[in-house]
Design a protein around this nucleic acid. Structure first.
Length: 421
DNA sequence: TCTGGGGTCCTAGGACCC
DNA sequence: TCTGGGGTCCTAGGACCC
């Protein structure tokens, strides 16, 4: 059996832990630059506010006091997530952290009748220890566990735990699940399926295998088998990431090459920092620029360029220098840029780096690496603000992000914790 | 005026090899 | 006029997830 533990309205719940006055009220959490709705409380969901709604379309509700608004505070959410995950890690031998607010428990070897009491206990314990409400879905496959967790969340009668452990329950649950809600079937495929008369998860699971294979290939077939109770999406072994990306929208549009270079340097430095944190090195660096896609009146331009490194690197100097070279290849004056990003790819473990036969200077590499490590020791974790390259200029990209409704860092800063009182 | 950020996997098609 | 067969690797683009 698999159990999917899913935090309810996670970002909103994090905010409520430290501001209980938000309890019972319609609340939304916004993306960077206070751009879009990325989390909603049950109350704001019932008001009809959709995921991804641009905030300016609903800001009037906030002005007249009918909606509480929070800018996103990822430091807080990351820390609350770690607390929830550590409780789960202590409770069972194998867990798979799937996202900031979800984890699968792999329950091989558990006696089936112990599973439900264990999960009920976890729901209560996580609520008591962290303040976060969670729902748990239990089923023989991950795809079915996802569906079970939807039921656990939606119907209070389940008290947070729903288990699909026989075929009657499976068929009932599938018949009540719209096909577009199934894990692995997204917004693009759902309309295509409905056109073909497949409206529920049960319709999908009852189609002949040949039809699924023909229309949706391997991925669709996996989902089909999982819905029928055959495990296809196995428990995963801890796999290293294959790429790391840092990208941001700017609070205003930028035209100047210098100004954009500062941002790109800073994003590249952040990517290099992430590489060092996980002990890996990257073989290439890609820079992307974006004009404002919502402005029909402005000329659009979405270029990208990749620079390959002769020898995979993780030090800030080499990653930033490659990013600036890539940026020079694509920057064109006259456009108004709204967003930029840096992705590092071809990632290998740092100790497995193959030195290039040509033009590789081990002395220089070693000096660069030592300097980066020193910067890591001086700078606060996850930042590059105190010691930084000259090309990063003035301060940190996150200083330039609009956050008009931001909560405090209650759980990671002692001073701010005291302010709760 | 105002519209997020970070990932993965699969497939088709082109380039290249013998 | 007429131009094989089999394979690998890489990349771009599309789909999905949170």
């Amino acid at each position: 059996m698999y159990a999917l533990v899913d935090c309810n309205n996670f970002f909103v719940s994090c905010e409520r832990v430290f501001r209980p006055q938000l309890e019972g009220k319609p609340v939304v959490v916004l993306s960077n630059n206070d751009g879009c709705v990325v989390a909603r409380s049950n109350e704001s969901k019932s008001m009809g506010i959709r995921m991804g709604t641009p905030f300016y379309q609903i800001s009037r509700l906030a002005d007249i006091g009918k909606l509480e608004v929070c800018s996103s505070n990822y430091t807080l959410y990351g820390d609350m997530s770690a607390r929830v995950m550590s409780i789960l890690t202590d409770a069972v031998p194998r867990i798979e952290i799937y996202s900031i607010d979800e984890a699968f428990l792999i329950l091989d070897g558990f006696n089936e009748k112990d599973v439900r009491p264990l999960c009920s206990h976890l729901v209560a314990k996580i609520r008591k220890w962290t303040g976060i409400p969670v729902s748990i879905g239990i089923a023989p496959t991950k795809t079915l566990a996802k569906i079970a967790s939807h039921f656990a969340k939606k119907y209070p009668g389940y008290k947070g735990v729903c288990m699909i452990d026989d075929d009657t329950k499976r068929v009932k649950a599938l018949s009540m699940t719209p096909v577009g809600e199934v894990w692995g079937i997204g917004r693009r495929l759902a309309p295509k399926l409905e056109e073909a008369g497949v409206k529920t998860a049960l319709d999908y699971a009852c189609r002949p295998e040949s039809w699924i294979r023909e229309n949706f290939m391997l991925h669709g077939l996996r989902t089909w088998m999982e819905l029928r109770g055959t495990v296809c999406v196995e428990a995963e072994t801890e796999a290293a990431r294959k790429s790391i990306c840092t990208s941001r929208s700017f609070s205003r549009m930028l035209e100047d090459e210098e100004e954009l270079s500062e941002k790109v340097s800073d994003f590249a430095a952040r990517c290099a920092g992430k590489l060092r944190e996980e002990g890996t090195a990257a073989g290439d660096v890609t820079v992307m620029l974006y004009t404002n896609r919502f402005r029909d009146d402005l000329e659009q331009y979405f270029p990208s360029a990749t620079v390959r490194l002769q020898t995979a690197a993780s030090n800030t100097q080499e990653i930033v220098s490659a990013a600036l070279r890539a940026m020079k290849m694509i920057y064109r004056p006259g456009y108004k840029y709204k967003k930029a990003g840096v992705t590092v790819g071809n990632i290998v473990p740092a100790e497995a780096v193959q030195a290039s036969l040509f033009g590789f200077d081990p002395e220089l590499r070693s000096r660069n690496d030592r300097l980066s490590r020193l910067m890591d020791q001086v700078n606060a974790p996850g930042t590059s603000s105190l010691l930084r390259l000259a090309s990063q200029k003035s301060g940190h990209y996150s200083d330039d992000i609009r956050r008009e409704h931001c909560s405090r860092r209650y759980s990671t800063s002692f001073d701010e914790l005291l302010e709760i009182r």
